[in-house]
């Protein structure tokens, strides 16, 4: 069972209290973008075995969207953070790098 701590209300919520929102830190391509860019934005996901950044919503709790970094292979959770960020916090990235030296970064 996956347990994530909501950064807005501090509840350690288990999976059934949350709603998954797919990959985080996507760059949106809207009107005026090329077909390739739009296809990439709409359909193409990393789906890694390892470190993954995801969007989650504390659906049955405070209702806020937040972001989480976890390992898809071991279910280890590296951390959760506010959705109002353009990229993962530096300290979280350093922590992941320390635990997974061959991790290539979130991009």
């Amino acid at each position: 069972m996956l347990t994530l701590e909501c950064p807005y209300c501090g509840v350690k919520a288990e999976e059934t209290e949350l709603q998954a929102g797919g990959e985080a830190h996507l760059k949106r391509f809207g009107p005026g973008s090329s077909d390739d860019e739009f296809e990439g934005y709409l359909f193409l996901r990393k789906n890694p075995k390892g470190v993954h950044f995801e969007r989650w919503r504390h659906a049955y709790g405070c209702g806020k969207w937040f972001l989480a970094a976890r390992c898809t292979a071991t279910l280890e959770v590296f951390g959760t953070y506010s959705a109002q960020t353009k990229e993962p916090p530096a300290d979280l990235q350093a922590k992941i790098k320390a635990k997974r030296p061959d991790w290539e970064g979130y991009k």
């Binding site: 209300c9 509840v11 059934t16 209290e17 049955y60 709790g61 405070c62």
Partner: peptide
């Protein structure tokens, strides 16, 4: 106060 689910609904 804890917002959570009760069985399958919000509570």
């Amino acid at each position: 106060i804890r917002r959570t689910r009760a069985a399958q609904v919000a509570a």
